[in-house]
Design a protein around this nucleic acid. Sequence first.
DNA 1: CGGGACATCATGGAATAACATGGGAAAGCT
DNA 2: AGCTTTCCCATGTTATTCCATGATGTCCCG
Lengths: 158, 158
Amino acid sequence: MESFRGRFTNKIDAKGRVSLPAKFRSVATSQGLNGVVCFPSFQGSFIEGSGPRFADEIAQMLQRLDPFSSERDMLASVLIGDSAELMFDSDGRIVLPEELRAHAGIADEATFVGLGEKFQIWEPKAFEAFRAEALEKARAHGDLLKSPAALPPVGGAR
Amino acid sequence: MESFRGRFTNKIDAKGRVSLPAKFRSVATSQGLNGVVCFPSFQGSFIEGSGPRFADEIAQMLQRLDPFSSERDMLASVLIGDSAELMFDSDGRIVLPEELRAHAGIADEATFVGLGEKFQIWEPKAFEAFRAEALEKARAHGDLLKSPAALPPVGGAR
DNA sequence: CGGGACATCATGGAATAACATGGGAAAGCT
DNA sequence: AGCTTTCCCATGTTATTCCATGATGTCCCG
């Protein structure tokens, strides 16, 4: 199963165009879409992105919630209402909508971080800060690597 | 199950290419990938590497966490975002990205150390120092190794 | 037991392809 | 018309592919 992996920082030109890293592009196209799905994170100042497969999974997760609950509506308004399907141009670039760029504080450079089935888009300096923190947490959780069996059971984390 | 075994030191050319030891190569290909997955160790100045099987185990471990939890994002950004899938060229070489080389302090030579299901890549002199220390610790903790017959059934190894 | 033929492997360099990026022309929108 | 968005082409850089060489090992046969 191909997945989003690695970290790449690309420039955004005057028209708002930015190259999606070629390796990410091939993951998305292998899932049957000539583009990616992006939406603002509700956890921080960055953009979440994925191929169509994970985007469909999100939609299914929403459908399992109570159709008229306010929780479902709020999640859906972000995950679906604020999401955008960004298609590649003939050179593999996408245009990040102003809304998304503002949410992530992105000006003229964007850092793409592969996270497996999804990826994130950060303002480079903001990501550096996040990464330093993440590295610390990972070091603390380093023992998980030695025995994955020690993880909480499925769905048990938050 | 084939595993990474032995120690080899190879040269890195001007383009960052280095031959993966043939014996390591056959382990990776037998796992179904014509390449290896590498990421910077967060325990020291060396590179961790493995075949696709171990890399998939990590990915599956992460998938057991909630898809948008900060815990998962942090672990994934370190374990996957900092990793690279390095494919063999037709001569069995990989290209070590500048970032990984910098992390390990590697210039023009790299030492590959087999560790079973994974391996490590060191700057040769740094490894010599580490090895001297490891030898001492092995002497001190050799009694930790028990006969397999004395171990609990499955899941005890890793 | 020795020698050679052959295969495997590490390594170097050059040709080639892929990629990120910038600019301009054409096509919508308002 | 004036603006924005999309498409197309140009360019420099980086990565990938291809071929050549020497070294080391391995196997077979004398």
